[in-house]
Design a protein around this nucleic acid. Sequence first.
DNA 1: AGTAAGTGACTTCTGGGTAAGTTACCATGG
DNA 2: CCATGGTAACTTACCCAGAAGTCACTTACT
Lengths: 216, 216
Amino acid sequence: MVKAGTSKAGTKGVARPERERQIVDIAGRVFAEHGYAGTSLTAVAEQAGISKPLIYNYFGSKEGLFAACLTCAGEVLVEVIERTARLGLVGQQRAVVTLDQFYAALEPRPWMWRVFRDPTMPATPEIAAQHDQYARRMHAVGVEGVRELLHLAGNDDPLDASAMTAVWVNVFDALVTWWIDHPGESRASMTARTIRLSGAVFGPMETAPPVGPAFD
Amino acid sequence: MVKAGTSKAGTKGVARPERERQIVDIAGRVFAEHGYAGTSLTAVAEQAGISKPLIYNYFGSKEGLFAACLTCAGEVLVEVIERTARLGLVGQQRAVVTLDQFYAALEPRPWMWRVFRDPTMPATPEIAAQHDQYARRMHAVGVEGVRELLHLAGNDDPLDASAMTAVWVNVFDALVTWWIDHPGESRASMTARTIRLSGAVFGPMETAPPVGPAFD
DNA sequence: AGTAAGTGACTTCTGGGTAAGTTACCATGG
DNA sequence: CCATGGTAACTTACCCAGAAGTCACTTACT
């Protein structure tokens, strides 16, 4: 033994699963703020109050840590969008309710959205495949709604539907990002704002949408 | 002298201003693809067919090179948006014409948009101030148009206008990014698509917009 | 000859990743 | 109730590739 008592090694009584959740949450925040490429694991470890090797112990690599964050984000976001789609709403109502559900899901962890859309995420096949899987499922739901809208306007061009879906996703992005930049706003006030803006653009809705808790 | 004739040093007959433009153009492309944080100047130099010290000679640092790209992008984009605003169009027409002008401006250098919105750009005060300056001017123009739209709907909330502007900017972003991802599309086909989508969402326009060359 | 354009070969430092060890918890057997 | 060893949680101190940044030098044009 060397100078017993001076070393700070040794368990702190935190079990692995809890510590992993903790690290993913911190890392997600840092990834969201600086992007994958701009993030150093030293900084993450510092923020999390632990040492770098522990991260490697649990996640294997920087990419592995990002993959964990991506899985966390992807699962939540896909779940929300697919569940909301099953409500069977259409048009403006569908849009507003989906946004409201997103706000609810992102309220505790706003970093999820940024991580999912990080343009600097690693370009490896593993990450790409993982991201693609979630993106496809979300895109499929989005395209379905968009195609219906375009069809009503007499447009069945698949490229138009693709572009329109991109627009729609970015509208989400704008509102979520705006929300992150205005931390004073609650989920409720964001949803109210969404309804006002939607009304200003498309005209007011006939019936109030069934906005409620995240899980009905 | 050491082994005269084997060295590859010496001018290649390219004047500094031209070489600078060249480097900015290449660097812009690389920054756009990998983000500032993910880009190495060695790679840029390689792509440009020159050596790294020349970049440092002309731009001082990696940040300086990025600043040059940002200036280039910011000037062009602000000029487009302010000039288009002066046309005095409103509503749907204004939106479509602005987008068309953006497509025209970005056709030769699509990287400008990505560089301007790079989330990994250096967080130094200099860069932040520079970016802010351009962003403010663009936002101001956007907010002006948006406020009018909202006012017509009886909404004068400044926060609503701010959020709506963010949405509007991201709609741009979506279409430009979609375009970058679909290199087969020309500016003309993008504008046509924009008009179709705008019509599907807001209803067809009464009068055709005056879409023309970048400079009238 | 003077200067602008240009480079090879360095130094330095950051950040991903690792080896080897330290400490606390927890089961057992006495 | 206490020693004792096994394991899981943790750290310090390091390696090393690659990228930022620099220096001394060379070549071509005028």
